[in-house]
Design a protein around this nucleic acid. Structure first.
Lengths: 176, 176
DNA sequence: CAAAATATGATATATTATAACATTCGGAGT
DNA sequence: ACTCCGAATGTTATAATATATCATATTTTG
C-alpha cells in the first residue's frame, strides 16, 4: 500500500497521487471501470463496449495519452476505428467526468474521482510523464478571490503545472 | 479602516486587466513595442521587422490570436509568409517573454509586462474573448504549497480560467 | 412493429504545427 | 571592399490533432 506523509485533510485534495513505479495498476483500472459504470448508470447514459474500451486504453497508464495513440491501440481489436470513433468516445467520457483533457499536451488522462465535481488541476512530470490530479481548495480559493475582485464569473479552470515529480527528483532524472 | 494598502498590492498582481470597449488601444501597442525593443536590447537579440510586425499583429487586440490568423494578416504585406514564418516569430517572442501561448485555445496573446518574470495566469472571457493576465501570488503560493507537500519541483505553470468578464456579465451576454 | 433517438461507420477535410533544406542578410575580421 | 560565418528568412513538404458530413446500424419507445 502506498502511504502519504500528509494528513487526511490534505490527502482529500489529492484526487490521484503520483504512483510508485510498481503499484498494482490492474486495481486502478478495475476501480476506474467500476466508477464509470456507476456514474453512467446514475446519469442514465450508456457505457457501451466502445466507450469502455477507450476508457480502459486511457487508463493503460497514469500518463496522458494522445487521441491518435489511442486510435492505434483501438484498431488492434477494432479494425474499423477511425479518428471520429476515438474523438466521440473521448467527448462522451469527458462529458461524464470520466477523463480529463490536458490542454498543454493535447492528451487525455483518466479521472481519479468521477463522483466528485471538480475542475482540472494537474501536476505533470516532464521526465516520467506521470500526472497527479488535485482538487486543491487553496488553489480554488485563490482563483475565486482574484476573479471576484475583478467581477469575473469562473466557469471552468485549467491548472497544469509542469515540473519534476518526487520520484524523478530523487533519481536525478533529467530527460529533457 | 480601509484596505487601501491591500488594494495597491492587489492591483500589482493584475498584469493586464480587462479593457473597456473603447480604451486607447493604440497606446497599448506603442507601449508593447517599446517594451519589446527594450527587452530585446537587454537580451542582445535582434528585434527584426518581421518579429516586430508579428508582435504588432498579436497586439491588434486583447484577444488571443491563432497562428494561421496571424499568417493571413501577415500575408497582406508580406506575400512570401508561410507557416514557419509565423511560428518562428512566435517562438522568438515567447522565448523573450513578449507573448504568451494560451494552451486551451491554441492561440497567442501579448504579454503585459515582459520585464517581470512570471508564469502564465489568465482569465479568459468566453463571450468577448478578451483576456486578463494575472501574476497572483496567492495562486502561486497555493500551487507551491501543494507541490512542496508532494515533493514536486514546479518548473512552469499554466493557469487558464474560462468564464465571463465583468463587462459581459453586466450586459447579460451569453454568446455560448 | 414503426418511428425516433442514439451510436457507430466511413470518407473527406479542416486546423495547428514542424521537418528539412535553400537562400539571403548583416556584421566581424582582414 | 571582400569573404566568411552565423542568424534570419524563404520554400516545400508533411506531421499531428481535430471536426464535418452523410450513411448505416442499433436501441428505445410508443
Amino acid at each position: 500500500m502506498e502511504k502519504s506523509t500528509q494528513g487526511a485533510a490534505n490527502d482529500a485534495q489529492v484526487i490521484a497521487p503520483f504512483r510508485s513505479h510498481a503499484h498494482d495498476h490492474g486495481q486502478c483500472v478495475v476501480e476506474a471501470i467500476a466508477a464509470a459504470e456507476s456514474r453512467c448508470e446514475k446519469d442514465g447514459s450508456s457505457f457501451t463496449p466502445l466507450r469502455r474500451q477507450v476508457l480502459e486504453l486511457v487508463w493503460s497508464s497514469h500518463e496522458p495519452v494522445g487521441a491518435y495513440e489511442l486510435l492505434e491501440k483501438l484498431r488492434r481489436s477494432r479494425r474499423k476505428a477511425a479518428p471520429p470513433t476515438v474523438y466521440r468516445a473521448l467527448d462522451f467520457l469527458m462529458e461524464h467526468g470520466l477523463i480529463h483533457r490536458i490542454e498543454s499536451l493535447n492528451a487525455y488522462v483518466g479521472c481519479g474521482d468521477p463522483e466528485r465535481r471538480h475542475g482540472g488541476q494537474f501536476l505533470i512530470c516532464r521526465d516520467c510523464q506521470s500526472v497527479a490530479e488535485l482538487d486543491d481548495s487553496a488553489i480554488d480559493k485563490a482563483v475565486a478571490r482574484r476573479a471576484d475582485a475583478l467581477g469575473f464569473d469562473v466557469q471552468q479552470q485549467t491548472v497544469e503545472i509542469i515540473g519534476q515529480c518526487a520520484n524523478c527528483v530523487s533519481r536525478g532524472r533529467n530527460d529533457r
